[in-house]
């Protein structure tokens, strides 16, 4: 790790991102998940880049309020990379869309990788050691568990943050010097959109539970959800998503969309559709 090559300012910002990244689940919601913490992590970056430009600060924060979700460790890798990209954006080397795309592209695969590593490997091993000691009434087991499974995460976070920042800085410079930024932007869109499509399939769910009985006899039920899913799996989820995208493009506010979802869900449940 090239720790000592950072300027004091970079070091200070990286340290701030590191501490703030621990607040990963601050005001976690189904709509935005870890977005609040990501915005907090970007505050030191944005403030150092645009110290006097209130308008630009606001716009940047709004961008980082977008949906974000991954395991808490690669969270810092993506935050470090975003720090580098925000710096390069100010230098005119990358645009906003690339930053959003890279974040969107990385969150899914990193979540899968790190979830299984930490939950299925490190936690199981740490708990195994700890359970052995604790079952004999030895409190050392608990302490070891916190050290092996908790503190190690912070250590990993610190190195992942630096790795993300280093990669971002060197990679963007290489591409920019070759004059291929516009091509890179397109490629980032391809990966970003593919991953958002994949995550939509996995995470967006319209829980339709609607059965029509036309004949009034046993066996005459028509399960609407199954028919729709046989046309296209998760059809309603995709329709819901693109209706929402259309409404956003028309200028509807998130408040209105959230209220709309509540009304839709409650009316649907009352009618027995959900």
């Amino acid at each position: 790790m090239a720790t000592n090559t950072y300027t004091p300012e970079e070091k200070a910002i990286l340290r701030k991102i590191f501490f703030r990244s621990h607040r990963c689940f601050m005001m976690f919601s189904m709509a935005k998940m870890e977005a609040n913490c990501f915005t907090m992590c970007m505050q030191p970056v944005i403030e150092s880049l645009y110290p006097d430009d209130r308008e630009e600060q606001g716009k940047s924060y709004l961008r980082h309020q977008a949906f974000f979700n991954t395991h808490t460790n690669p969270f810092t890798f993506i935050a470090g990379l975003t720090y580098a990209m925000e710096k390069e954006r100010k230098a005119g080397k990358v645009d906003e869309a690339t930053i959003d795309n890279v974040k969107a592209a990385l969150m899914g695969p990193t979540a899968g990788m790190f979830d299984s590593f930490w939950f299925n490997a490190v936690r199981v091993i740490s708990a195994g050691i700890a359970i052995g000691l604790c079952s004999q009434g030895n409190f050392l087991g608990t302490i070891l568990f916190v050290l092996l499974y908790g503190v190690t995460q912070s250590v990993a976070k610190w190195y992942l943050l630096q790795a993300g920042y280093n990669l971002g800085t060197s990679f963007i410079d290489t591409v920019f010097n070759s004059g291929l930024v516009s091509v890179l932007t397109k490629c980032a869109s391809v990966v970003g959109l593919t991953m958002v499509g994949a995550m939509t399939a996995n995470m967006v769910n319209v829980p339709l539970n609607w059965v029509i009985n036309t004949t009034g006899k046993e066996g005459g039920e028509v399960v609407v959800g199954n028919i729709l899913n046989s046309i296209f799996p998760g059809l309603l989820g995709v329709i819901l998503l693109f209706v929402l995208v259309g409404l956003i493009k028309k200028g509807y506010r998130p408040t209105q969309l959230i209220a709309g979802i509540f009304v839709l869900a409650l009316v649907g449940a009352l009618l027995g559709i959900f």
């Binding site: 949906f67 995470m203 769910n205 989820g237 995208v245 956003i248 969309l257 979802i261 839709l264």
Partner: peptide
């Protein structure tokens, strides 16, 4: 059901961006 569909809002904002 509403809680499940809330994720669609997050993804819709992301997709439109």
């Amino acid at each position: 059901a509403a809680s499940g569909m809330m994720t669609a809002i997050g993804f819709a904002i992301l997709t439109s961006m």
